[in-house]
């Protein structure tokens, strides 16, 4: 039995949770058809819609844990629910998306059961011993690791599997009310602020993003970048070097430790394309890179590129756009 903890966003299963189900399906096949159960905790919106979704992605049952304990999120209380359902179903594998909450809940479970946990798994390579490959050094390297104990606990790195529906029937829904000890309710969200008036929200949902990295040169080097973004009706996204140096605010950062973007057009300028940056922009439909180095990973991975100094290329592009728009 494989237990997949499913997260929802605005009442629908999150993309990374569906990617996690894709890995679980592959694992189930390798293991001779072990059943997959999905577990959703607390208020997840329309439960039967969720059951249809997780069913279409290979889960035969959706366990839905409810109760006062799940009114607001806490790592320990969520883990208590997973622990109870795992014990009752005898699951030998427990997995979740490699999101902040997914990693947190599985790490709590690992500590409670005193078993190892592998974070950000991208693949499994053997069943006995169970061997997984996971991202380390922010994705710049992979680690092959054995997970010999049961249950095997791991999270799945985003974008490492494709969330494909297999048209399974809706999962059967089973409602449970797990007991949660008082000690597991100490650290819970006490309040949730309005979504930071879309400081990074606009970046995450933008259809056009103009990016800038160390190549901008200084805090004053963003003039043409801001201008191109406004000419295209897009927003600015930056690399971590830029936020670390204090040139731009953190909410503009794209990447593993910033926002994940999926625009129709991304124009990264003076960004080398480190794997941690790539993790946040890989879903862009078209990438037009501007870089002085024709061999920079951002250039070689882009759809189109201009090799040159962004401080010369961007003003020329802006000028050309203004000229054509009359």
């Amino acid at each position: 039995m494989i237990l997949v903890v499913v997260e929802t966003e605005a009442g629908v299963a999150s993309e990374v949770s569906l990617e996690t189900l894709a890995l679980a399906r592959s694992l189930s096949q390798a293991g001779g058809g072990i059943a997959i159960r999905a577990l959703a905790i607390g208020d997840v919106g329309d439960v039967s819609a969720l059951a249809a979704t997780v069913g279409a992605h290979g889960a035969s049952e959706l366990v839905h844990a409810t109760g006062d304990a799940f009114d607001s999120y806490g790592g320990a209380s969520w883990a208590a629910a997973v622990q109870a359902v795992r014990a009752e179903t005898g699951s030998v594998v427990v997995t979740a998306a490699g999101t902040p909450r997914g990693n947190e809940v599985v790490a709590h479970l690992a500590a409670r059961l005193d078993v190892p946990m592998a974070a950000n798994v991208v693949a499994f390579s053997g069943l006995s011993p169970f061997t997984v490959t996971r991202q380390v050094v922010g994705g710049s390297a992979l680690e092959e690791m054995t997970l010999g104990t049961r249950p095997a606990l791991f999270t799945v790195a985003g974008h490492s599997w494709v969330a494909e529906a297999v048209d399974g029937p809706a999962a059967t829904v089973r409602e449970v009310q797990p007991e949660v000890a008082g000690a597991d309710l100490v650290a819970r969200v006490v309040s949730t602020g309005a979504k930071e008036a879309d400081e990074s929200g606009s970046l995450k949902s933008a259809s056009i993003v103009v990016g800038a990295g160390r190549g901008a040169g200084s805090a004053d080097g963003f003039g043409a970048v801001d201008e191109l973004a406004s000419l295209l009706g897009g927003v600015v996204g930056v690399s971590r070097v830029v936020t670390s140096l204090g040139w731009r605010p953190h909410h503009e950062q794209v990447g593993q430790t910033g926002s994940r973007i999926a625009p129709d057009l991304y124009v990264p300028c003076g960004i080398s394309g480190a794997i941690q940056h790539w993790a946040g922009c890989a879903s862009s439909k078209v990438i037009v890179a501007v870089n002085t180095d024709a061999e920079a990973p951002m250039v070689t991975r882009a759809t189109y590129a201009v090799v040159g100094d962004m401080h010369e290329v961007l003003p020329a592009v802006n000028e050309e756009i203004r000229r054509r728009s009359g």
Binding site: E144, A294, T300, V313
Partner: peptide
């Protein structure tokens, strides 16, 4: 429980270079 570390190979490139320097502006 580490078996080993590996560095993933670089992805193949299909980039189309639009040009060099500011002269590429029209193509962009």
């Amino acid at each position: 429980s580490r078996v080993k570390l590996v560095v993933p190979p670089p992805a193949p490139s299909n980039v189309e270079v639009l040009g060099e320097g500011p002269e590429a502006a029209a193509a962009v």
